[in-house]
């Protein structure tokens, strides 16, 4: 029996309840109740077949409309409720994102190492090569090849750590090992010339050793950067240009350098180099930064290079000094003690 009134009121009732539903579960239950197998809607649909042909069409049209009304109401409510529930779920998952997290704790580089890499990168950008040599070095490379003869007064002024030994004899007849802890990265100069030949543009960064006790401004183990260029037509003007470029790379566009006459056995003419440091405490000023000069002909001869054809320049700067200046560090102890708090101040890229 197709009961038009009963099915219409059932569907109307169902739509009303759907609109009041508060959860998708309730919604699903209502769909089963009003559109499921046992519902008035299903019963009415099934009974259409038993109607006389003239009644079938109208009943069919009614059922289509009721079904569509119900479906629209359901879909609208379902969308609404799903959004609501998702929102609730997200709210429930909300956390305090300001809580500190560090699942992969970062270590740190030592600022001396990163500064040396910066210096290396400067030279690489200029088209130079980076060279190195041994820290325990023969006296020949550290002294003799650099024009410090066995009795040269400057050789005694180097505060050298000597390596113990009694198998060898130096040129002055003193027994020893003929080995030292290298006093300067200049010891790499003649190694570079011998192994690489000319023209040569090399920079060496590394550890050097002098018998100075550790205090606020000295350390027996420190780092230098040595630069050596040997080519035809190099002059002291090229030395000044390279120094200025390095100063700018290290200390900013206002930095520059100044040369004062000095003496090193391995350069002639020789100079002390002062750095114009704009951020100097108490106002910009000159600060001693390193030594330099034109390569002494005897050094070139030590490497078998004709000083009448080739000229060269060399300079050495202290890496610690540059770091102390750049970062306003007042005590050398901080650089050498390896306190992790010191290194951790520096961002890894710095």
């Amino acid at each position: 029996m197709f009961d038009e009134q009963a099915v219409t009121s059932s569907v109307t009732e169902g739509i009303e309840k759907i609109q009041k539903a508060s959860s998708t579960d309730e919604l699903k239950a209502l769909r089963a109740q009003y559109a499921g197998g046992e519902s008035e809607m299903t019963r009415a649909s099934k009974s259409i077949g038993k109607l006389p042909p003239e009644g079938k069409k109208a009943a069919g049209q009614l059922m289509s409309k009721l079904r569509a009304d119900f479906g629209r109401a359901f879909a609208a409510k379902e969308t609404e409720l799903k959004e609501l529930e998702e929102q609730k779920a997200l709210e429930a998952e909300t956390v305090d994102v300001t809580m500190p997290v560090d699942r992969h704790p970062l270590g740190a580089r030592h600022p001396l190492s990163t500064l040396m890499e910066d210096i290396q990168d400067f030279f690489v950008s200029m088209g130079w090569q980076i060279a190195d040599g041994p820290e325990v070095e023969t006296e020949w490379y550290d002294f003799d090849a650099l024009n410090f003869g066995p009795d040269h007064p400057a050789r005694q002024m180097q505060d050298t750590f000597y390596v113990k030994g009694d198998k060898a004899q130096d040129a002055a007849g003193f027994k020893g090992s003929n080995m030292v802890m290298r006093t300067q990265t200049s010891s790499d100069q003649v190694r570079g010339l011998l192994t690489r030949g000319v023209p040569l543009y090399i920079a060496c960064t590394g550890r050097v050793f002098r018998t100075d006790e550790l205090d606020a401004t000295h350390t027996p183990v420190f780092h230098q950067c040595e630069a050596l260029a040997v080519d035809k037509n190099l002059t002291m003007a090229d030395l000044k240009g390279t120094l200025d470029a390095l100063a700018v790379a290290m200390f900013g566009p206002e930095a520059k350098t100044r040369l004062r006459p000095s003496y090193f056995p391995f350069t002639e003419p020789s100079a002390e180099m002062d750095l114009w440091f704009p951020d100097k405490k108490g106002g910009p000023g000159w600060i001693e930064w390193g030594g330099c000069g034109m390569v002494n002909p005897n050094v070139l001869r030590s490497a078998g290079i004709d000083p009448d054809v080739y000229t060269g320049f060399a300079f050495g700067v202290g890496v610690e000094r540059a770091l102390l200046l750049r970062h306003d560090i007042n005590d050398m102890h901080d650089l050498v003690e390896g306190d992790i708090r010191f290194s951790k101040q520096f961002a890894m890229g710095e």
Partner: peptide, 8 residues
């Protein structure tokens, strides 16, 4: 032993 050699 390491020899002592002249510079230059």
């Amino acid at each position: 032993p390491i020899p002592a050699l002249p510079g230059g």
